[in-house]
Nucleic acid binder design. Structure first.
Lengths: 355, 355
DNA sequence: TTGAAAGCGCTACCAG
DNA sequence: CTGGTAGCGCTTTCAA
């Protein structure tokens, strides 16, 4: 139906190679012939070589896959993920590479297939949970990949761009501890896979499966342990998702206590903003009696407006560097393992504890 | 190097077809054989059929292209575009379809090529300027597409999901006019392609090339013409981009006038927020002497916090419906032309003009 | 239930 | 500068 390269060749009376050259290697034929071929193509309604056939032949696609372990549509809901994507797309557009966003079905077999079937030259994996299965599939396919977290047990050639989660979290916790807070709560998303929203008991941060959350909780713990606050004395909260509403839900009951914590340290800004929402929803008397300091993580744009004290990590740069690492692998493997700086941004959501 | 389906077939001692069936049509061979084949594949490090080869053979890719006429990385900067993408991805993930985000180079020939080379089954075109060239290319390729604006001159089978830009804009302008405002300014992004940021003269809205902006300006004009304000009496402003900063830049000089407009109607929330920024940056005396009402367009999340009066259009639904229209074309062509409702959201940024 | 044959549409090599 | 040849890796009738 649709004309093929062959049809154009026949129409002009040349061979397929020549038509192919007209498109892909203009220097391989006379300008006149090329013009003639292109004209015939337009005539026939031939819109250029079939991309799939070309990719098969060339063994190269011109697209990289972007993998979010969570729901794809969720990625567009999370400001941090969106800024990460902005960075990815900036690097991609500089390289003329397309981005294939691959939605992963909930069932593991389907998710595996989705990764197997993606026609791409490599993957940029946004780590948001357990993605090791995906990395295995990608490895089996012989494709390169870059992640946003160091993969434990991976070789020195594993490329990633990450932050020191633990140290970053510690910086926030030290700030809060220095303000005198001792009765505190840590809030993370999905701290344990199936735990319901709210308080949770854990004997150590090591039990947390999600590496990012684990690192951050451990960092919080480090700082408070250093000032004599035992792990058993902190309230550990888990939210049912990384959203403002989930953050608010997770702390609501705790805030109604007679002696609520004087500070809540959250594993993301989105959760922290939810805590602020819950705080703002209290009646005036309770609010005055029990001021609560809050810290977040990421420093998304909304954090500034809300006056949220948080740990800034460069979202867009993370995406951009990850993509560059994928598209132009550094000769030196060490240069493929990037640790980005973080910075504690102190705003108004943290205040000295009332003595 | 990488094992192929053939290698697996050889290893097991069956034909390629059988291995193929093991992956694509499990019901076509005995479970025992299938298990054996899959085991051999794992053994050899075969990660399943090559997606590109499969696509070529099947004539189907399993991905749709998403086209932004502007910079791809810009799309992640615009809250409205992000929410649109969220809707697109929601529909795509329900269909198990991937999303190919295609960056378009600045030069027309390169952009054309990018569209020609995208390995997809169809396109979802986010209209943000002049995309007719892209629609032509897509049409030549014989691929289906959906746009976010009615294409003038297209047949009745052209699928789109849009809003009535003019009527929507009129609703905002009528509200402002009803508040008594008569000395007003209209602010759009790139009203004329090469005009510098700031005031601009135009004899009619019809001269604006960008259809969305044209429609909105015409709507503003409709409402004010109805209350006796002539087009020549309104200040027309153009911004150098759809960003907060560009919006602020565009109005800054005008606000320093002795008799600035009492209201600014912007073509997007982002621009309107920039106007609010510029307004907030004035000294107290000027601000008190010259209050300025502002309206936006889209109702992005930030608009609510800023108290911006705006016209709401359902961003996510727009993306979702567009994608569904592409993925499951309605039998009735009329059902493929969707006009979404808009709603005027009155907040605090518009007040009666001081008499 | 299995296998042989016939391409999908294109590009790269190499000889002319 | 041009054209023939030989696949890229897979799926799909169709016949056995």
């Amino acid at each position: 139906m649709k004309p093929t390269l062959q049809a154009v060749a026949d129409a002009v009376g040349v061979s397929r190679s020549t038509v192919s050259n007209a498109y892909s290697r203009p220097d391989q034929l006379s300008p006149a012939l090329r013009t003639q071929i292109l004209a015939a193509a337009r005539e026939l309604g031939y819109a250029g070589p079939n991309p799939t056939a070309r990719s098969l032949r060339r063994g190269f696609v011109g697209a990289i896959g972007v993998l979010f372990t969570s729901q794809l549509s969720y990625a567009f809901t999370d400001p941090f993920a969106v800024r990460f994507l902005a960075g990815v797309s900036r690097a991609a557009e500089r390289h003329g590479t397309s981005l294939l966003l691959v939605p992963l079905p909930d069932d593991p077999a389907g998710a595996r297939q989705a990764v197997e079937n993606a026609a791409v030259d490599g993957f940029c994996v946004y780590c948001a949970g357990d993605e090791s299965w995906a990395l295995d599939v990608i490895g089996d396919r012989g494709l390169p990949y870059v992640t946003t977290a160091a993969r434990i047990g991976a070789g020195t050639d594993h490329r990633y761009v990450a932050i020191d989660e633990r140290a970053a979290a510690r910086s926030a916790a030290e700030h809060v501890a220095a303000l005198g807070h001792r009765r505190v709560a840590f809030l993370g998303d999905g701290v344990l896979p199936d735990a319901p929203s709210g308080p949770l008991r854990l004997s150590t941060a090591d039990e947390v499966p999600h590496p990012t959350t684990r690192g951050r909780l451990a960092g919080f713990q480090d700082a408070f342990a250093a000032v004599g606050v035992d792990w058993s004395a902190v309230t550990l909260l888990t939210a049912a998702g990384n959203s403002r509403a989930a953050g608010a839900d997770a702390v609501r009951d705790l805030l109604a206590d007679d002696a609520p914590p004087t500070a809540v340290l959250a594993c993301s800004d989105v959760l922290a903003l939810g805590v602020l929402d819950a705080l703002a929803a209290r009646d005036r008397r309770t609010a005055e009696r029990h001021p609560v300091s809050v810290t977040g993580f990421d420093d998304i744009p909304e954090a500034a407006e809300a006056g949220l004290t948080t740990v800034r990590q460069p979202a867009e740069e993370k995406g951009r560097i990850a993509t560059e690492l994928l598209l132009e692998p550094p000769a030196d493997p060490a240069a493929g393992q990037v640790l980005l700086d973080t910075e504690l941004i102190v705003r108004t959501s943290t205040r000295p504890v009332r003595s």
